[in-house]
Design a protein around this nucleic acid. Structure first.
Lengths: 203, 203, 203, 203
DNA sequence: AATGAATGAGAGTTCATTCAT
DNA sequence: GATGAATGAACTCTCATTCAT
């Protein structure tokens, strides 16, 4: 009453639903996750889910949107370390994030449903990968300006760097062919990606 | 009976079922594809499907296994063109293949279900991508032997090259953010991948 | 508080609910009209409906009861016009009223639910048709006394006249086979009903 | 096997479903009759209903269509009795039929849903009342030709006669205000209708 | 008096699967 | 081998109703 912000009670409930739904969706996939199962996991009734979300698809979307915030991958423009170090660091963190079981499960689910839910793939991409790519691209552009990198389209370059990071391990994991990497493996792969990238973009 | 090889009639039926099921699975995804729909598309009865496959999952697996054969991506070791040309050609063909709507749909479906069907992801990977990577690795090894490329792990290099090819367009398509590329776009992207790759692996 | 008659504020609210509920019930029918929809149309919350009415059925009943007041069909005993004219006039007004979309919708709804809500059919009939029939019967009795009509049961005669008015057009409309009649059609049908009636009851 | 007509087994099941569904629909009305209840009454599973009918609405329609066949109301053109007798007989049979509880329940249900299922009202009317009216109109036309009735539109006349038959008792029953009539009451009302009708159409 | 979050039963419908023919 | 009718469980979603605030 008289407070500045909000409907905190309802919001808390809503947040809790999204959180629980996330774990169910990621474990079972969109199709196999039932609203009953989610309601049971939340500890409420099915009807309540529909008080907060108009449909299963809408709940799923909320899960996806909330997920984009994960993975703190700030690329600091003023970072003064040698570029190789910066890229290895950034690539390593990104790779460790996307190899986490939960992230991987989400990635799989979103890709699996993108054909039928086009807005969903878009929402996920914009909430997650796009942002990270944009920040890396800004860093790359910065270093191009500084003469440390050959001039080229920084966004394409950013895509390439991230793809190189995910070229082996993550690709295998996507298909269930590899387990989560140890920290050392992540660094090795990021380093290798940085090496290829820097050779190609040396000024 | 009395023939040398096979139960040809039953085999033909089986093949037809797999073929039809593929199109249904790819269009709707595993969860949303119903056995009824498949039976109707085959032109037979639902019961018949169960004569050939013990369950929906088994039929799905058969579909995946049969799929690996697509995409003629032979990398000819004796190809005498300059490596840049060979890579651009090969990368372009690979990219064009994986951007086809059907291939993309399969890719999505397999990735989407890999968490729940681990053997399936493996079966797909082995029947498809692995083979192509192995052939490219052989080519790369050959050129390393010839001194055209710096010595390194040829399999990792192969993964990197394919990842570079798929870095932008295919990545976007996976999430439904881009339409299928024109032929020229494919070539451009393959060329760019070859450029980065060759810079990194110059002897 | 402190006023002579009533809880006027609550009464106003109650009246408003009934009014809004009517339109919803008539549009959707009893079964398909949801309390949510009614609450939304009223602009209040679902809970409020239950403050004024113990159940959906009770609200429905209130709607029906309030409806009888429609249709100004006074039959003036002292009307000195020729009986044919009076009947045509009266029959025409009645027919026009019952062919109105809202009246028709109510009629359908009440009839549809009369099997399960017997008090409801009765309430409607008494609030609506019965009254009109009684007034017509009084008029007919008056004219019988005056020797203008053969002596007979005036109530049966009244029923017959109204049934004759509704014999064709309204009957078709009930089943969705005809649209609302133009004014001229109404007059024609009322005139025909008066003709048959007068021939049968000529003294 | 090798028989001339039909799929008798499936047809029998289908007929049984329609028959059972009819009793449930008439007892509860369309909205309140659930597919579960119908399945239970049939003694099968809900899924089976959907083998024979694509939806609840379609099953309902089948019920209505099958109902039209009821009520043997042949009007024999060569009937040589006096017209009054013929009409009393015919009107009485019609009235007895429409006052049967089951017929009345159907009538109510169809009218109640006609606003939302316009094709349904039409289907019912064409399968039932229309036919009876047409036959009576033919009889009336025949007697007009014979000079026994004043010349006029025979179809309107037929509507009027049936409406006169239903003017009192049936009208009350529709709203749950009267019980089913005894046989004698039916005859009385039919006779009265015939009297009014003949007075109006005397040559 | 008014709210609106919460409920749980039950709606119509679809499905993978079975089995007698 | 092929069928297709039958099943019953599970699905998403809606509803009338209640109750703490």
């Amino acid at each position: 009453m008289g407070c500045g912000e909000a409907d905190t009670k309802g919001d808390a409930r809503r947040r809790r639903i999204v959180e629980v739904a996330r774990s169910v969706f990621l474990e079972k996939g969109y199709g196999a996750a039932s609203m009953s199962a989610i309601a049971a996991a939340v500890g409420g009734s099915k009807g309540t889910l529909y008080v907060y979300f108009r449909s299963k698809a809408e709940l799923f979307e909320a899960v996806i949107r909330q997920f984009g915030e994960g993975g703190d991958l700030t690329a600091d423009l003023s970072d003064s370390r040698r570029l190789e170090e910066v890229l290895t660091d950034l690539g390593g963190r990104m790779l460790a994030f996307v190899c986490q079981p939960e992230t991987l499960a989400l990635y799989r689910t979103v890709i699996g449903e993108s054909g039928r839910f086009p807005e969903l793939g878009e929402a996920f991409f914009k909430a997650g990968p796009q942002d990270k790519i944009a920040r890396l691209a800004a860093l790359i552009a910065h270093r191009m300006d500084a003469g440390e990198l050959r001039r080229a389209d920084p966004e394409i370059a950013a895509h390439q760097f991230f793809s190189l990071c995910r070229a082996v391990r993550h690709q295998h994991m996507l298909f269930g062919l590899a387990l989560a990497p140890a920290d050392a493996d992540v660094v090795t792969e990021a380093k290798e990606a940085a090496r290829v990238f820097l050779a190609a973009y040396a000024p």
